[in-house]
Design a protein around this nucleic acid. Structure first.
Length: 608
DNA sequence: TGGAGATGTCATCGC
DNA sequence: ATGCGATGACATCTC
């Protein structure tokens, strides 16, 4: 059994008398047991949450989108890395389907800390003043128990992260709003006049969200023999085990809560009670909690925020996911690069392409010019062959198959079949109904509007080259031919439209990716928010345990103090105060009150 | 037949 | 100045 020690100073008037007190700390083990039980309790709660996290994630409809993406993928890329993000989305869906749609987080209203065992476990050994076992300071500075707490806390965190659960916003809101009947509130609340006997399990007097009060010192239980009026008398460490009788209640309201939170506490317990140890606990721990509150209310986990920031900073936002965007850029870049790489061969093979294209046959110039004018004036009518809508296809690949290269640019639905027929097909009298003609007719229907125009204008190279050649090679290509002004204009229009078409496709793809990524970010943030809420609850629970532990030690130490007549000190007249250097002072209540008020102002000023 | 989604096109802006 | 990509807006088509 490990003992702890502390220095006690008796302050009466202006004299300070140090003395020491030693006790054994079975309560540390007791507390540890409590924490373990509580952790198990928490795990159980979180597990139940997971089970409860049921439905409602259809709002994001990832499965639906993934189906679309899969179809898209099959149709477009074949085996490209198209939908890695969709796979992630599916995983996220499987992982995140569990959403609490009906309840919020819950945790037990009763805290299982059996602190009553503390006093029973405290033997009345070691009365020697020379044996200086630390009592409070090691406990409060976390040599042993806090380590256990932290260790178990980390265990809990790992468990929670492994669960990777997601809690719906509703759950979070429930936790936040903390309705009157909510366990967090009720658990912490205590009737103001409730006298606390140490034999009563202290968890019944558990602290409530740092907003409720401990009225452990109702006047009726403070009829303890008041110490004699003599001052400057050394405290006599007592071996009395009558803690329960002499300190059936001890005013710890100020001890375990920030004094500003105790405003309603003291109407029945005499003068405003000091907060001798409050500063120690509250300053650090409550600040942490406040930070967490802030982070939660902001809806951001700093890590996530920085990650998001990185992501968004990587580009102008629209391309934020270009690195893992399946095809947003690959299509255009691939097409342009491939066209660039193939440009040399393309220019060298331009004549052959042209000859093949020209083999399809042209009508007279007057016809095509009329057609062009008519198209320009009226607009384009649909053409009904849409076998190969151009969707991120690499035209250069199609250019390898001259008779298919039109397919890649088939956006001809808005060209009238009649117009096509009249423009491109020879007169019926000259038609020989053969398979070649049927094939030509079929291919005609695959051609885009611009391809028809190009053919009508006898443009001597393919639209693929027009669109995808780099500007230098494109100009070089133009210079090789004697082209009329109308032909040059059409070629430039074809190039502009073709590039813009691909750009529009990329733009839309990017936009869709951006939306999906934002949705995923929202999910991540919701998950983080839920996790932080759970952490907050756990921190509050740990804080409560620590305060209970300090409370019990306070009672124990105070109960062992004796004045020069061997009588215990009245908690209504004296209080223990924990100094920053680890020492504990016994000071008059009035002094403690003043210090409590001073500490009360500090946080208020700080929050301004 | 009207609505939603897909696609092409134009206009415009910025690099 | 020019080319080009990005994108909003609109038109058209398909389902």
């Amino acid at each position: 059994m490990r003992g702890v020690s502390c220095f006690l100073f008796l302050i009466r008037g202006d004299a300070v008398l140090p003395f020491s007190l030693s006790v054994t700390l079975a309560n540390i083990l007791t507390l540890k047991t409590c924490v373990t039980l509580d952790d198990i309790d928490l795990i159980d709660i979180l597990w139940r949450q997971d089970i409860d996290l049921g439905a409602g994630r259809e709002v994001f409809d990832y499965s639906h989108r993934q189906k679309e993406q899969d179809v898209d993928k099959e149709l477009q890329d074949g085996g490209e890395r198209e939908d890695t993000w969709a796979g992630e989305g599916a995983e996220a869906l499987a992982r995140d389907l569990l959403v609490d749609g009906e309840t919020g987080e819950s945790f037990p209203a009763q805290f299982p800390a059996d602190v009553s065992s503390i006093t029973e476990a405290v033997p009345s050994e070691s009365e020697s003043p020379t044996l200086q076992n630390s009592l409070l300071s090691p406990l409060l500075t976390g040599t042993e128990s806090p380590f256990d707490l932290e260790q178990q806390w980390q265990d809990l965190m790992s468990i929670m992260e492994m669960q990777a659960m997601e809690v719906n916003t509703s759950a979070s809101e429930i936790l936040y709003s903390a309705p009157p009947g909510d366990p967090l509130s009720t658990n912490y609340s205590l009737a103001p006049n409730t006298p606390i006997n140490q034999n009563v399990s202290l968890h019944q007097a558990s602290l409530g969200g740092c907003s409720q009060d401990f009225s452990l010192f109702s006047p009726e239980v403070e009829s303890i023999p008041v110490a004699s009026s003599s001052t400057l008398l050394p405290l006599v460490p007592s071996n009395s085990t009558s803690l329960n009788s002499t300190f059936g209640s001890t005013n710890l309201a100020g001890l375990f809560f920030p004094s500003q939170l105790n405003g309603t506490a003291n109407d029945t317990s005499g003068p405003e009670l000091p907060d001798p140890l409050g500063g120690l606990l509250d300053e650090a721990m409550l600040d942490e909690i406040s930070l967490m509150d802030l982070a939660i209310e902001e809806g951001f986990n700093p890590v996530q925020a920085s990650q998001l920031e990185e992501e968004f900073d990587s580009d102008s936002g629209l391309s934020l996911d270009s690195s893992h965007s399946p095809s947003s850029l690959s299509s255009s870049e691939g097409s342009s690069s491939s066209s660039s790489s193939s440009s040399s061969s393309a220019s060298s093979s331009a004549s052959s392409s042209f000859s093949e294209e020209g083999a399809v046959g042209y009508s007279s110039d007057s016809e095509t010019l009329d057609l062009e004018e008519a198209e320009g004036a009226v607009g384009y009518q649909p053409e009904y062959s849409k076998f190969c809508r151009m969707s991120y296809q690499d035209p250069s690949q199609l250019s390898c198959l001259p008779y298919l290269e039109h397919v890649g640019h088939n956006h001809t639905y808005n060209m009238a079949p009649s117009a096509l027929d009249s423009a491109d097909l020879p007169p019926p009298s000259t038609l020989k109904k053969g398979s070649k003609e049927k094939q030509a007719d079929f291919l005609d229907k695959q051609m885009s509007r611009d391809e028809h125009r190009a053919r009508a204008m006898k443009i001597p190279f393919t639209n693929d080259k027009i669109i995808n050649l780099p500007v230098e090679e494109f100009n070089e290509l133009l210079s090789k031919y004697q082209l009329s002004e109308a032909q040059l204009s059409l070629i430039r229009d074809i190039r502009r439209r073709g590039k813009n078409k691909m750009a529009a496709q990329n733009c839309r793809k990017r936009k869709l990716d951006t939306i999906l990524n934002l949705e995923r970010d929202v999910e991540d943030l919701q998950r983080d928010k839920a996790r932080l809420l759970r952490e907050k609850v756990e921190f509050l629970r740990s804080l409560r345990q620590m305060k209970q532990k300090v409370q019990s030690l306070y009672q124990e130490v105070f109960g062992r103090l004796r004045d020069e007549n061997g009588r215990p000190y009245s908690p209504s007249q004296y209080a223990l105060q924990y100094a920053g250097d680890g020492s504990v002072l016994l000071i008059p209540r009035t002094m403690a009150d003043q210090q409590a008020r001073r500490q009360e102002r500090k946080p208020k000023d700080r929050r301004k």
